[in-house]
Design a binder for these strands. Structure first.
Length: 610
DNA sequence: GCCGTTTTCGGCCCGACTGTTTTCAGTCG
């Protein structure tokens, strides 16, 4: 490793750090204030922890952050309705800090804390294996002022001079720094999920493995994954863990115990494997699936009922002082033991699911089996890889009833967007292909550019010949918020527009959402019977789950589309869209492509015929 | 700092692994 390596490669960290500076509400940020406030509350928690403040005070800020981030609506709305105190974990103090941030763009308490806290302490907390105690120790005794200085201190063997620190500590710090630099934090689910499938597939071949399943944020289908958790039942844990730490994907072994193995893959992703007994499988699955906040709620319920819940089971405390297992083999048993129905993993975020479960009001979530087709697809008429005939073939093979051919429109020259004339020719060609097939249908569509003034890129005379008109922004991303909002609402109000695609334009890890008032857009979509897409591409997932929930609650129909350009690789992304919908509490009734082609066209054409 | 079908005060989830130790603190999830 060259001695002068800098850490500019840690981009996601830097972005987080930039958000932390807080003073200027960031340019180009359409995100609701929820996540900004969550980041700030987490920073307060970090700093309080470094200062060895009361740990319950620390977790109060973390819980507050989590609940604000998971809120389906905008925090501004809750504040305007004086309803902040209704959010679990938000009391008088946190509410006043939220109001202060919304009014002034800063939290003076945090400003004060920052003045007194060297940035390097916060940076060090991002290194795996370094917590608040170690960070303070390194800073105080060695005068470490940056991650680069920390690296030098480790290389110069100065860290081993400290109490309870030896060679191994230095080694781990260097590896932690390297990991941070390479992985930059969280991994998009589109990358993590296939890797997990590969590992599960490989380990599943072992005769010693009885059951194997993903857990953690992967099973909850979060947009990005911190690390991959895999749960196994086996009578021979040692054999399974040994095989796991020797898989081809493994670059480094972090831990290898009798119940747990932990590795870093060549791609820099951490994978944790846990082996449990058959009789604890359900309790362990529940525990390792999380979220942490959901688990804490479950344990609190257990305590209220004079029980104890851990990863081994649900136990009743006996008067004799002993305990008796009442559940553990399946998740259903555990929930039942707590007096709750089974709660699907995707909504275990402590965002109202426990209360809904108690009321018997959990939604019947949409599933992959309900999906009858894909509503966003490109052919080689624009920038896709496959011909129309091939698309029909792919669609049929996937078991779909229909697939919407939605090539780009003429303004998008770089993607060979179709002019009115070429689109007419494509329509005729699709009619010809549909005439030859039964039980499957290519839907005539177009992904029409929304021009800067909100007009559509194609003439009405051709739009009215399409089954579905998808509208989307592909240019001039940096418009000011009011103009961008007006632009998109103009497009939505066009009587031909049926679906608004990737509505915020964000690309996970590379491009922020453009500046747009999504609340207003959702309102306009509801008023005009326009559907909004969950773009299922794993780098987009746009709408995200919280906004999809909001949109559906407002009565907007949701369309799931993969935006596939290369069918062999991308069609399967539909699952990320479906699981995002599940995270947004959506039922099949709220999703367009759970309907037959005629049903969904009937819904969309209501607008045209108004 | 939050919260209350035991409570407005006194609690607040629980266990494994590592690295350094001879019994445990720190970190993680």
């Amino acid at each position: 490793m060259p001695a002068d390596r800098d850490f500019t490669a840690i981009m996601p960290l830097r972005r987080v750090a930039a958000m932390r500076t807080g003073e200027k509400p960031e340019r180009g940020r359409a995100r609701m204030k929820n996540s900004e406030i969550a980041v700030l509350f987490n920073e307060i928690a970090d700093i309080l922890e470094l200062r060895e403040e009361n740990r319950f005070r620390v977790s109060a800020y973390r819980r507050g952050a989590q609940n604000i981030e998971g809120l389906p609506g905008a925090i501004e709305d809750a504040a305007a309705d004086s309803a902040l105190a209704d959010i679990p974990g938000i009391g008088k103090d946190l509410a006043s800090k939220i109001n202060e941030y919304l009014d002034t763009g800063k939290i003076s308490f945090l400003e004060e804390l920052r003045k007194e806290t060297p940035q390097v302490l916060i940076d060090m907390l991002r290194i795996p294996g370094i917590g608040p105690k170690t960070a303070v120790l390194l800073h105080r005794h060695l005068g470490i002022g940056s991650l680069e200085e920390l690296r030098h201190a480790a290389l110069d063997h100065r860290i081993r001079e400290l109490p309870k620190m030896k060679e191994k500590t230095e080694e781990n710090i260097l590896k932690g720094l390297e990991f941070l630099e390479r992985s930059g934090g969280r991994t998009p689910i589109g990358e993590a999920y296939p890797l997990a499938e590969r590992i599960i597939d490989e380990l599943g071949k072992l005769p010693e493995v009885k059951r194997i399943t993903p857990a953690g944020s992967l099973r909850r289908f979060r947009e990005t994954i911190g690390d991959i958790d895999i749960l196994v039942t086996s009578p021979k844990a040692g054999t399974v863990i040994e095989r796991f730490t020797h898989l081809a994907d493994v670059e480094r072994v972090l831990a290898e115990g009798t119940t747990k193995g932990s590795v870093i893959t060549a791609g820099g992703i951490q994978v944790d494997l846990r082996v449990v007994d058959e009789k604890s499988y359900g309790a362990a699955l529940c525990y390792f699936t999380g979220s942490k906040e959901h688990n804490i709620r479950l344990r609190e319920i257990a305590i209220q009922k004079k029980m104890k819940l851990n990863e081994y089971g649900l136990f009743r405390t006996l008067r004799s002082g002993g305990e008796r297992r009442i559940a553990g083999a399946t998740e259903e048993d555990v929930y039942r033991g707590l007096g709750l129905p089974f709660i699907p993993p995707e909504i275990r975020e402590d965002s109202g699911e426990i209360e809904a479960a108690r009321r018997g009001a959990l939604p019947a979530l949409v599933g992959m089996k309900h999906i009858k087709g894909d509503l966003h697809f490109h052919s080689n008429w624009s920038d896709g890889a496959a011909s129309l005939e091939e698309l029909a073939e792919y669609g049929r093979k996937a078991g779909y009833r229909y697939l919407a051919v939605s090539d780009h429109s003429k303004s998008l020259r770089i993607a060979h967007g179709l002019s009115e004339d070429r689109l007419r020719a494509q329509i005729a060609e699709i009619d010809r292909i549909n005439g030859q097939t039964r039980g499957f249908r290519l839907l005539k569509s177009s992904e029409v550019d929304i021009l800067p003034d909100g007009a559509l890129d194609l003439d009405s005379s051709v739009l009215e010949k399409l089954d579905i008109v998808i509208v989307a922004v592909h240019s001039k991303f940096k418009m000011p918020r009011p103009e961008m909002t007006r632009r998109v609402i103009n497009a939505i109000e066009n009587p031909h527009a049926s679906i608004l695609a990737h509505p915020t334009g964000r690309l996970l890890g590379s491009r922020d959402a453009y500046e747009i008032d999504m609340e207003a857009v959702i309102e306009a979509a509801a008023a005009t019977c326009t559907a909004i897409e969950i773009n299922a591409h794993p780098m987009r997932l746009d709408l995200n789950a919280a906004m999809a929930r909001k949109a559906a609650e407002s009565g907007v129909m949701i369309s799931i589309g993969t935006d596939t350009h290369k069918p062999a690789l991308e069609m399967r992304h539909i699952r990320y869209g479906v699981y995002t919908a599940r995270r947004g509490w959506l039922t099949k009734e709220q999703i367009l492509n759970t309907r037959t082609a005629n049903q969904l066209l009937g819904i969309l054409h209501k607008k045209r015929n108004r």
